[in-house]
Simulated assay, not measured.
Amino acid sequence: MNAWSHTTVLLNEATDALLTDPQGQYVDATFGRGGHARLILQRLGARGALMAYDKDPEALAEAARIQDARFSIRHQGFAALGELPPGSAAGVLMDLGISSPQIDNPARGFSFRADGPLDMRMDPTRGQSAAGWLAVADQRHIAEVIRDYGEERFAGPIAKAIVSRRQERGPVATTLELAELVAGAVKTREPGQNPATRTFQAVRIFVNAELEELEQALGASLHVLQPGGRLVVISFHSLEDRIVKQFIARHSKAVVDRRAPFAEPPPTLLRALGRVRASAAEVAANPRARSAVMRVAERTDAPVGSAA
């Protein structure tokens, strides 16, 4: 078993919100280390099924430990949801962000707490690493990414420091090298927060195209959810949560066309069911749950084809 453990956030709350039919077909769009998946399988009936997605080879290795004919997993990002048949899912769960083993393993390059290669890819077998991108990106693009995805007000000075370092001594190659560069460029920071926190978040989101994939997966969920099916999304930072909140709002409110004010408004495709935060007890036991926000919506009985 991996030395890096993972505590699933909002485990019971998410499973309770998702499962409306024990014999239904469900999707765990972000398997991670399988906490939600295992509980879902415990509660499913004999005719129920769970399909999971994950890009991380280590997640797939963990999934292989589940010996259950009702379970399957695909080595894909969750934007591939759209390949499933229309109206085939009784529920879709998305637990966003990165898992504790990914953060805690220095070899993955996600954390500034220990030195390791500056990788940050969810799937280290595909695409460009963080180090690879920072070695070639221009200063303006680096600043835009850090500002837009990290909400970092010192994005300009940080990008300048990265490019200057690249010109003088070669590109940044390790997590601690990047963290030290950022610390030198950030003049002030919130108490208790490492100066590199926002930059590492931004680079990770960009390298993995996380927000673009989230938008694609949310759109695909409308296609695959059956009437009454649940969409359950757990996010861990404001950029993700804003996308989820706006998506649910956009598809759960009837919009009147001002050009034809007496025309029947198009059918809503979702019904918002609320927002849940981790309890004080869960946050005390697992501080990483502090920022978690779970939003739940239900697919209406509007024709599936109307999502297009």
Results as ranks from 00 to 15, higher is better:
S5K: 15
H6W: 05
H6M: 06
T8S: 15
V9W: 13
D21G: 07
P22T: 14
G24F: 10
A29S: 03
G35W: 11
L39D: 00
L39M: 09
I40Y: 03
I40D: 01
G45W: 04
A52E: 03
A52V: 06
D56I: 11
L60A: 07
A64Q: 14
I66M: 08
I66S: 02
A69I: 01
A69S: 12
H75Y: 06
G77M: 09
F78A: 01
A79S: 12
A79P: 00
P85G: 10
G87I: 01
S88I: 03
L93F: 05
D95E: 13
I98L: 12
S100C: 07
P101Q: 10
P101C: 08
A107I: 00
R113Y: 01
R113G: 00
G116K: 13
T125Y: 02
G127P: 10
S129K: 09
A131M: 07
H141V: 06
I146F: 12
D148I: 07
Y149I: 01
E152Q: 11
E152S: 09
P157M: 11
A159H: 11
A159W: 11
V163C: 13
Q167S: 15
R169E: 02
V172N: 08
G184E: 13
T188E: 14
E190P: 14
P191Q: 13
Q193R: 15
P195Y: 13
P195A: 14
P195S: 14
A196E: 04
A202N: 03
A209K: 15
A209I: 00
A217G: 08
P227T: 09
F247P: 03
F247S: 06
F247K: 07
K253L: 11
R259G: 04
A263W: 00
P265E: 04
T268V: 15
T268A: 01
A278I: 02
V283P: 00
V283T: 06
N286Y: 08
N286S: 09
P287W: 05
S291H: 06
V293C: 06
R295D: 02
A297C: 07
G305K: 14
A308K: 14
